[in-house]
Design a protein around this nucleic acid. Structure first.
Length: 114
DNA sequence: ACTCTGACTATTT
DNA sequence: CAAATAGCCAGAG
């Protein structure tokens, strides 16, 4: 961070807020968040924001997976199994590092379904 | 200032 | 269908 351009600041802040809006038992993707923020091609930055999130707010980063429901970021948690455990604690089935019925559990920030 | 890396994705070969 | 390619941009060295 350090460099607080108005744009990037909003982007990071909004990412955190959107992630916090994810209901329990649901998951979303980096791309969906990026697209919701009007930067569909900046999905990597969403991941970077997540990476930095551990120092900022309590963000349920475990509810954010890649576009196919793969738990790509599990390695960045305290323990590699933590992400899956957190998901399973919310009734999200995980097999082979990916979310089962991902398409059904997917939560689109644009919809913000309750 | 430059280069490289990365929790991504869509498109093209 | 698997692999490469190109956008995207913030940190670290």
């Amino acid at each position: 961070m350090t460099k607080y351009n108005p744009k990037t600041l909003d982007f990071f802040e909004q990412v955190y807020q959107v992630v916090q809006l994810i209901p329990e038992g649901r998951v979303t993707t980096y791309g969906a968040i990026a697209k919701y923020l009007g930067a569909s091609k900046s999905s990597r930055i969403v991941g970077w924001a997540m990476n930095a999130s551990h120092n900022r707010y309590e963000v349920p980063a475990h509810r954010v997976v890649n576009r196919v429901g793969l738990l790509t970021g599990k390695h960045h948690f305290d323990t590699p199994s933590l992400m899956q455990e957190l998901l399973e604690a919310e009734s999200v089935e995980v097999e082979e590092d990916k979310v089962v019925k991902f398409k059904t559990l997917f939560w689109d920030p644009s919809i913000q379904a309750l």
